[in-house]
């Protein structure tokens, strides 16, 4: 199985704070990677560097064989033009903690916006795809509703459908259930599980240990800007090798 995502010695600082201190990670195509760690461990920042929402200071990331945000020539990395970066991003779906649906557009308009503007698909076709995706996340009847008329769980399901509308080869989830009421978490996780079973490559930053155990192929535990350990969930969650992982799990489980 080839690597869909390859991350090599990535460093990132915000001012004088070094958030990522040399991250190396490979994600195989069709696999689900769950990233765990305390807040401030750099897991969200790592996720955001994968679609170049944050630039890396050192190191590089490639998705499906292409460097993210840069072009390599000799021993130099040239920053890509905005247009090229935007094109790369359409292959990478991103789901935010706070959904970030466009509140002034209906659910259907939210879904077709990028396919129309970026991929220049015909409206009819884009809307048909959008309705199919809404059916898949169980919200077919909400196509004409505005985001604020939906519950948090429904909004996040729409956001997932919106990310899928561009038919990305990789999906990134940044704490997709952290802003939800407890009884709404399940419906969102069910949608993500469903995607996982269909072989979508995903990286999920979350605090849902149960979800990690059930769905993840690989669990990555981060702390202080480094990957402390990674492996199959049975190993990392049940027999952690590092003291730091053990103490984190004992607090959240």
């Amino acid at each position: 199985m080839s690597a869909m995502v390859e991350i090599r010695s990535v460093h990132k600082s915000f001012g004088s704070v070094e958030v990522l201190r040399g991250i190396d990670l490979e994600v195989a195509a069709g696999r689900v990677t769950v990233v765990l760690g305390p807040s401030g461990s750099g897991k969200s920042t790592l996720l955001r560097t994968i679609n170049h929402l944050e630039k890396v200071d050192r190191g590089w990331i490639s998705v499906d064989g292409a460097l993210v945000g840069y072009r390599k020539s000799g021993d130099r990395l040239y920053e890509l033009r905005e247009r090229e970066i935007l094109k790369q991003r359409t292959g990478i779906g991103f789901v935010f903690q706070n959904f970030n649906l466009f509140p002034h557009l209906t659910v259907l308009e939210n879904l077709v916006e990028a396919p129309l503007a970026v991929q220049r698909r015909p409206r009819k076709e884009a809307e048909a795809t959008a309705r199919r995706l809404l059916t898949r996340v169980g919200l077919a009847e909400k196509a004409d509703a505005y985001p604020r008329q939906l519950s948090g769980g429904q909004q996040q399901r729409v956001a997932i459908a919106r990310a899928l509308a561009l038919e990305p080869k990789l999906l990134l989830f940044d704490e997709p259930t952290s802003a939800l009421d407890p009884e709404l978490v399940g419906e969102v996780l069910d949608v993500i599980k469903d995607l996982a079973h269909q072989g979508t490559t995903m990286i999920v930053v979350t605090h849902e240990i149960g979800f990690a155990r059930e769905v993840a192929d690989t669990v990555v535990f981060m702390d202080g800007g480094r990957i402390v350990e990674q492996g199959p969930p049975a190993q990392v969650l049940d027999h952690p090798r590092h003291e730091r992982t053990r103490s984190f799990l004992s607090k959240v489980l």
Partner: peptide, 21 residues
């Protein structure tokens, strides 16, 4: 909200369209 711009950027919307739409 800054998240709106991020979401639009993550979807690959061009700068001008992000602003206008």
């Amino acid at each position: 909200d800054a998240g709106q711009l991020e979401a639009a950027a993550a979807l690959g919307l061009p700068r001008a369209r992000r602003l206008r739409r």
